[in-house]
Design a binder for these strands. Sequence first.
DNA 1: ATAGTAATTAGAATCATTCTAAGGTTGAAA
DNA 2: TTTCAACCTTAGAATGATTCTAATTACTAT
Lengths: 144, 144
Amino acid sequence: MAIMQPDERARRLLRELEHHGYRPTPQREAVCWALARHGGHPTAAEIVEVVKLHGIGQATVYNTITTLEKLGVIQPMPLNTDEHTRYDLDTTPHMNFVCSQCGSIIDCHAPQLDLMLAQIASTAGATFESANVVVYGRCERCKN
Amino acid sequence: MAIMQPDERARRLLRELEHHGYRPTPQREAVCWALARHGGHPTAAEIVEVVKLHGIGQATVYNTITTLEKLGVIQPMPLNTDEHTRYDLDTTPHMNFVCSQCGSIIDCHAPQLDLMLAQIASTAGATFESANVVVYGRCERCKN
DNA sequence: ATAGTAATTAGAATCATTCTAAGGTTGAAA
DNA sequence: TTTCAACCTTAGAATGATTCTAATTACTAT
């Protein structure tokens, strides 16, 4: 998949909110923009830092993120390495690689992955809805 | 892999501690037993509940679990659905299926999975150390 | 306008986990 | 046996991310 630009991503988040009857308030807009402009895998606290400069409260950030999460347009990404919950704006099938040395996170796209996970789930008689795949190792820079 | 019996598992945890120079104190023994007898995917709080009946403190439980985690003999299993960290006593390659309705957790063994993840990591120039794969869906009982 | 609902907010509350400081246990050396 | 240092355990305090509360403000439809 092509890389999505920040403004495109922000509009997509807002569109999803409106589509489900949530009003596109200035505060929600600011949170969506901050999420989209982050570039990586933001935490709620990081977004709070950014938008509080515009007078937006912490509760609003948490509310908006929780709403976006319920709509399935962002995904919480629980890691062993971080005390904050990080969010993934990319909800297409992929795995997240986390460097155990420098902590950097890389999205690795792999269309065949979800298929395999769905197959494994079906052998247990279960259905597949979503997945959270995290791989730990050394990134290209740190492995040397 | 055959299912490991609780006493076998407990002895394995203790052996690993001793092997790395940790003394097999009665408290650590109790924690290892409680972990092994839990059967599923215990949280620290659940173990605290069990062993405090024998006068063992919360700090000791957290200390012992952290030690076992560092030795790689148990694995933290961060989930979206639980505010406690659950631990996986099974460190062989497998994925964890979580029923989004009833919350039950099923270990699904899939030897080919880690191989695929390692391959995907290598396409990003990274090395594979460990993985945490969680799949959400409906379990056999809840899907009807 | 005005009523009713949705949204925002500061600050308090919650609660899992970690830290602290004090006391207990162990084992080996003198 | 005595000593000593390192290891262990523990109650309770501290931390800190997230959630809750209660009050205010901003829309929307009539």
